[in-house]
Nucleic acid binder design. Structure first.
Length: 554
DNA sequence: CGCTTTTGACCCGCGC
DNA sequence: GCGCGGGTCAAAAGCG
């Protein structure tokens, strides 16, 4: 099994990046019990420098505040699990050491509750220098009259108001785009997901009618929000999403010509068999012996793996008898602060909300990637949704082209320009459309914190498209209930976070760029070789052309 | 006492 | 067939 290269989702060190991490040579001996940690800590890291975006982060990171790191005066502290999926969208970490980590709620609120960017727009002018009421009554030493001062002040005020108005309009426009993208996302999900639910219900005509209605709905949305996204392009995107899975609506493919996309058709049995070998690996920088994923695990073995001085621990899910899900936990040989957790299998029981994200990610990622990875011989799977969702991950995401299974690696533990990241043998870079480095997820705490959820949700929808998700009744129930229930909350949370994070806003714009770019050039061309600019209303071009970063790791 | 962890033995697949 | 490495089993030990 280990011979199979797995999927690899590398989670950001978010805030636990240790600049001087202690060597953990006793990882399995860490006498920390998993699943019992209860203390939480905010995971916001210091804000990235966002030089390319005129919106100013109002987030105040007090660098003088106590360190979040679980260390005290270079003394090793035992840390429990790192909880990526705790409540509040992964913004907290679980640690055993109650007094080692604590953060003010204001830090969290400052990053999540702030949804109105208008208050934080830095228009580049020093508003404090404008005349106040008391100043207006004075006459300067040069003898300038009150009228002159007033005129000058009025002009300045007018200019400022104008600029403020434009900034507000720009923010409104971006919000509109966000709403539009969210709606489109839901529409596509309904469009491609519903037929799958009714598969076997043989109502193709109804499907076509539904498609037509959705198209009209998109047109309406376009009218309402004025976002210049061609419905055709959205349809192309939908085609991309549906075609990225091995099982898609056949009639849809036929009509759109996607069937010629060299996507081999794998039957469910084949894929299910492969699924049993598929894995999703989560790389995270953490001192904890195990990450908290919401499930209960029991250790059943430990082995020394070749080429790694750190032993590999084996766990199985104990939330239900007979649950086939296993996971392996091992520290990275090169960097022992990096914890690699590899999941395998699908849960046969309902999951708590805290576990939904990871479980959904693992099962769906495996399905999607297995089906998608088979779509081309060079290992470049149809990862358009990743491209769309994580447009800034060009320097972090890799997919292994080595047989028999592809490996996707999203290296969020690395700074934006990390072409030097030691890629595992056989891995190749996913040619995601490159985007400006400032919107790298590693630079966006909000984006990074939301990544598991985003990825999981998107993967789930992707897998719904594939039709492979329906192979197990339990899982289907779980996904249909759990995902449907959590989707709204997730979208809301993500929306709030996006609105609060200018980096993500820019990422959104870039994502739209990638959508348009990919559909304009070729629906399946994830390379987006053509650089393109997305102009905002103020005339500033958001350059989405390829950079060196995006080309790296091939 | 029950549950979890540890750890050596065993099984299995793969390459030679 | 044999050795190697990964994965699993299960008895013993540990722990609350």
């Amino acid at each position: 099994m280990a011979k199979a290269s797995g999927l690899s989702l590398d989670l950001d060190p978010i805030s636990l990046s240790l600049h001087n991490p202690p060597v953990l040579n006793s990882f399995p001996e860490d006498n920390v019990k998993p699943n019992h940690a209860t203390n939480t800590i905010a995971t916001m890291s210091p804000p990235p420098a966002i030089d390319h975006f005129p919106v100013k982060l109002n987030r105040s990171y007090d660098q003088s505040r106590p360190s979040l790191l679980p260390f005290d005066d270079n003394k090793r502290r035992i840390v429990g699990e790192r909880d990526f999926f705790a409540e509040k969208n992964d913004r907290k970490l679980v640690v055993d050491d109650a007094d080692s980590m604590h953060t003010s709620d204001t830090d969290i609120k400052g990053s999540t509750d702030r949804t109105d960017l208008e208050l934080n727009v830095d228009i580049g002018l020093n508003l404090l220098t404008t005349n106040t009421g008391s100043d207006q009554s004075s006459v300067d030493n040069n003898g300038i009259s009150h009228e002159m001062v007033d005129k000058k002040s009025n002009n300045q005020v007018v200019v400022l108001q104008d600029q403020l108005k434009r900034a507000k309009a720009e923010n409104q426009r971006l919000k509109g785009m966000l709403v539009q993208v969210t709606k489109n996302y839901n529409s596509i999900k309904i469009q491609l997901g519903s037929p799958m639910h009714r598969r076997g219900g043989k109502v193709e005509k109804a499907e076509e009618e539904e498609d037509h209605m959705i198209t009209e709905e998109k047109m309406e949305q376009k009218k309402r929000h004025g976002v210049q996204i061609d419905p055709k392009q959205l349809m192309d995107l939908a085609d991309e999403l549906s075609s990225s899975s091995s099982e898609s609506k056949s009639h849809h493919e036929d009509s759109s010509g996607i069937a010629d996309n060299k996507v081999p058709r794998f039957n469910v049995d084949q894929t299910e068999a492969t699924m049993k070998k598929a894995r999703v690996s989560v790389r995270a920088r953490s001192e904890a012996p195990m990450i908290t994923d919401g499930c209960q695990w029991r250790k059943y073995g430990q082995k020394m793996a070749k080429g790694n001085p750190c032993p590999r621990a084996y766990y199985r899910c104990t939330m239900a008898t007979g649950c086939p899900v296993r996971k392996q936990v091992q520290r990275c040989a090169e960097d022992r602060t990096i914890l690699v957790t590899t999941y395998e299998g699908n849960h046969n029981h309902p999951l708590p909300p805290a576990a939904m994200s990871m479980a959904s990610t693992t099962s769906s990622a495996a399905r999607m990637l297995l089906s998608g990875s088979m779509s081309s011989a060079d290992g470049i799977m149809s990862s358009n949704f990743v491209t769309t969702l994580l447009p800034c991950s060009s320097s972090m995401a890799t997919i292994s082209a080595s047989a028999p299974f592809p490996t996707i690696t999203l290296d969020l533990t690395q700074p934006p320009n990390t072409s030097q990241f030691p890629r595992l043998p056989g891995q190749v870079a996913v040619p995601f459309p490159s985007l400006p480095s400032p919107i790298n997820l590693a630079n966006s705490p909000t984006a990074a914190a939301l990544l598991p959820q985003l990825f999981g949700q998107e993967l789930n929808n992707q897998s719904k498209f594939s039709g492979l998700q329906m192979s197990q009744d339990l899982e289907r129930t779980q996904l249909q209930q759990g995902q449907e229930n959590t989707l709204a909350d997730t979208v809301n949370t993500e929306t709030a976070a996006i609105a609060a994070d200018p980096s993500f806003t820019l990422a959104l714009a870039a994502a739209i760029t990638s959508i348009i770019g990919s559909s304009q050039s070729h629906p399946y061309n994830v390379h987006n070789s053509n650089g393109m600019n997305l102009n905002n209303s103020s005339g500033n071009a958001i350059n989405a052309s390829n950079s060196d970063d995006s080309v790296g790791r091939r």
